[in-house]
Amino acid sequence: MDLDRRLFLAGALALPAVSEAAEIKAVPLYSAVAMQLMARSVEPWPDRAAARAAMLAQIKTVGAQILQAKIFIEQFAGSPMRLAVLPEYLFTSYPGRISIPDFADKAAIAEGGPEYEALGRLAQGMKIWLAGNAYETDRHFPGLYFQTSFIIGPDGNVVLRYRRLNSMYAVTPHDVWDKYLDIYGIEGVFPVANTEIGRLSALASEEILYPEIARAHALRGAEVFVHCSSEIGSPNPTHKHIARRARAFENLAYVISANTAGIWGTDMPLASADGNSALIDWKGNVMAESNSGETFTASGDIDIAGLRRARRKPGMTNYLSRQRLELFAASYAGQVQPANSLLSDGVVKTPDRDHFRRMQDEVIARLEKSGII
């Protein structure tokens, strides 16, 4: 296994063999928080240097906000706060119509870069696991970037790095699939970090709507889904609101979903993506949910021991253990969105934004021709 794959999987190692009773008792009750914070767009900044300075300044501000949330939660709720989840693309907002190479240069961060170092110092100083989401470059794919959900451990190191697999206007690992697999393997596509607070995995934004992605992580042991999102908030159930609860109970897993508290620096009305950050237990119950604005009110206790007991208990509601996956193998073998749309004879192409719309048009035409739609 090469160095890149070993580093990518650093947090996805098997747990040591222990007895069932010992494993269930191994994780004490702790608190987690979905930090609902305002994303700040890089659009107003004139160049790379200004954008990077703004990102580092915001990381410092966010650190202070998490610390205050930790102090409050531990004083009034009692359980130690050990996991904080940040919203999607908190430090850059979405790329909009900025070209892919230009956005990669201006706003995408590098593995081990100063932004990760700053975030690592926050996690280390507060002795927490810190989950977030950012656009990230990869030296194997120059000129491109991937939307990456990450988890940083209390030692300041990244223990999980997950690249978003389903996106409308951005490059995903599936678009360069063969080369991506050669470098990182399937374990790097669906990483699960075995930690002292449970087995953690990540879902990015609208991926909560695709049950296969969550299920692939759950079948690798995931117990807690950290979900970084930027979405509309509403008093009525949205698609993502419904999907969060479904992904929780169908996989017997916690979902910790952090939404943005608006997006600063674009022409879009500020609160268009605001509200409804939530903690959901493995039964699909909403434990806590935020209203609008910057807040840490979506917080609560995580009971991994209870979840593990539920997963080991036979019964109709143990949906994870009742899967009959072979039934669906033939149906899933058919292709909808094609792999390797940006890979030709091993060479990676840099697309324009309209490439992704053209690909979807072609897929819809093919599905229509085949009688599926």
Rank of each mutant, 00 (worst) to 15 (best):
L7I: 15
G11Q: 07
A12F: 04
A14W: 10
L15K: 05
A17R: 06
K25M: 14
V27L: 00
L29D: 09
Y30C: 08
A34V: 08
Q36E: 14
P44C: 05
R48S: 03
A51K: 03
R52L: 12
R52C: 04
A53G: 15
M55A: 11
Q65R: 13
I66L: 15
Q68I: 01
A69E: 00
K70L: 12
F72C: 09
E74A: 13
F76V: 11
A77L: 11
M81V: 15
A84D: 06
V85K: 02
L86R: 01
P87M: 14
F91H: 00
F91L: 13
Y94P: 01
P95F: 04
S99T: 15
S99H: 06
P101A: 11
D102Y: 05
D105S: 09
A110M: 04
E115M: 13
E117L: 09
A118Y: 06
A118L: 10
R121E: 13
A123I: 15
M126S: 06
M126K: 05
I128A: 05
L130Q: 09
N133A: 11
T137R: 00
H140P: 13
P142A: 07
F146K: 01
Q147V: 10
Q147D: 10
I151K: 01
G156W: 02
G156I: 06
V158K: 01
V159Q: 07
V159C: 13
R163N: 11
R164S: 08
P173F: 07
H174P: 03
I186V: 13
G188L: 14
P191I: 13
A193C: 10
A193N: 03
N194I: 14
S201E: 02
S201P: 02
E207V: 15
P211H: 03
E212Q: 13
I213L: 08
R215H: 05
L219E: 09
S234K: 02
A243G: 01
A248Q: 05
N251D: 09
A253D: 01
V255S: 04
I256L: 15
N259D: 02
T260H: 09
G262A: 08
G262R: 06
W264K: 05
T266D: 04
D267P: 05
S272H: 10
A273F: 13
D274R: 04
D274W: 02
A278Q: 06
K283E: 09
K283D: 15
S292T: 15
T295L: 00
T297Q: 04
A298M: 11
A298S: 14
I302Y: 00
R309A: 12
A310Y: 08
R311V: 10
R311T: 12
P314A: 10
P314K: 12
Y319G: 05
S321H: 14
S321C: 11
R324D: 06
F328M: 14
F328W: 15
A329P: 00
A330S: 14
S331P: 03
G334V: 15
N340S: 08
N340L: 07
S341W: 02
L343V: 08
D345N: 11
G346Y: 12
V347C: 02
V347A: 10
V348P: 03
V348N: 04
R357K: 13
Q360A: 11
I364H: 06
L367Y: 08
G371A: 12
